[in-house]
Computed example of a mutant assay.
Amino acid sequence: MRFSVLASGSTGNAIYVENDEHAFLVDVGLSGKKMEQLFAKIDRDMKKLSGIFVTHEHSDHIKGLGVVARKYNVPIYANEKTWQAMDGQIGKIPLDQRFVFNMEAVQSFGSLSVESFAVSHDAADPMFYVFHENGRKLVLITDTGYVSDRMKGIIRGADSFVFESNHDIGMLQMGRYPWSVKRRILSDVGHVCNEDAAVAMSEVVFEKPTQIYLSHLSKDNNMKDLARMSVTQTLQSCGIIPGEYVNIHDTDAEEPTALATV
């Protein structure tokens, strides 16, 4: 199993996951043209996509969904409430490309199993995914106001995490956003801050080689260096020393990460 975080941030999100048999996207939060450019950078062909999994209906996750699905005839998987919420946002999708992926369910694609789980976000029915193959585990978890014990139980022990580290609380509080937006981000249905993300990480990593990709960083209320420093310091305070068995990686809103093997 291999993956690349094609783009991650407040302006658009998309993650590519493949094995020897299938190739998938999780979310298409950028234009079709931009998606093609990102695929070229990781030397992959969008014509070979097997499907697209949708997490929720916010525009930074579905901006290019309809265009890409229609152009490349790609099946779309989302839960019923998300399908309803996307109505009118992604254009007409042929019935033979519309598939329901229920919450807290597992679907198998050959040797690859995909598990969905609920997160806490202000969307219709937001959910993220765990990819399993041959005892290896890739977790994708962003767009949640907190990480519940139930979420931790599902994601615990992964070999690779794409984990939200959205904002620095000080930057957010002092920043230009109106208070209503700040309150939404800080709420239980908003986004997790750097320190809270790291505390959750400390409770789900096992003592084995583990890769953590810090994702969905706010353009206005975070910076890569700050997120990495905050997460590192918090993990250290929890008894985990990044570089020993846990490695921290950046993601970017414009550039894909190198294809990594899980």
Results as ranks from 00 to 15, higher is better:
Ser187Gln: 11
Pro126Glu: 12
Arg228Thr: 06
Val67Met: 02
Pro75Lys: 05
Ser10Trp: 09
Asp45Tyr: 00
Glu255Leu: 14
Tyr77Pro: 00
Glu254Leu: 13
Thr251Asp: 06
His167Ile: 04
Lys208Glu: 12
Val147Ile: 15
Asp250Phe: 14
Cys193Met: 02
Lys47Gly: 12
Leu65Ile: 03
Lys219Gly: 12
Ser230Asn: 14
Gly243Phe: 01
Leu138His: 10
Gly29Glu: 11
Ser215Pro: 04
Ser187Ile: 04
Ile52Asn: 07
Asp43Pro: 00
Ala14Met: 15
Val231Gly: 06
Arg228Gln: 09
Asp225Val: 06
Arg228Asn: 04
Thr234Ser: 08
Val54His: 12
Ser237Trp: 01
Gly239Gln: 11
Lys47Leu: 00
Lys92Leu: 03
Pro94Thr: 05
Met229Gln: 11
Asp27Phe: 02
Ser31Gln: 10
Lys48Asp: 07
His167Glu: 01
Asn166Met: 10
Val189Ser: 12
Lys208Thr: 08
Ala198Lys: 00
Ile155Val: 15
Cys193Val: 00
Val100Asp: 07
Ile90Pro: 03
Asp149Met: 15
Trp83Phe: 05
Asp27Leu: 02
His191Phe: 12
His61Phe: 13
Asn194Tyr: 06
Gln173Thr: 14
Phe163His: 15
Ala7Ile: 01
Thr234Asp: 04
Leu38Ile: 07
Asn166Pro: 01
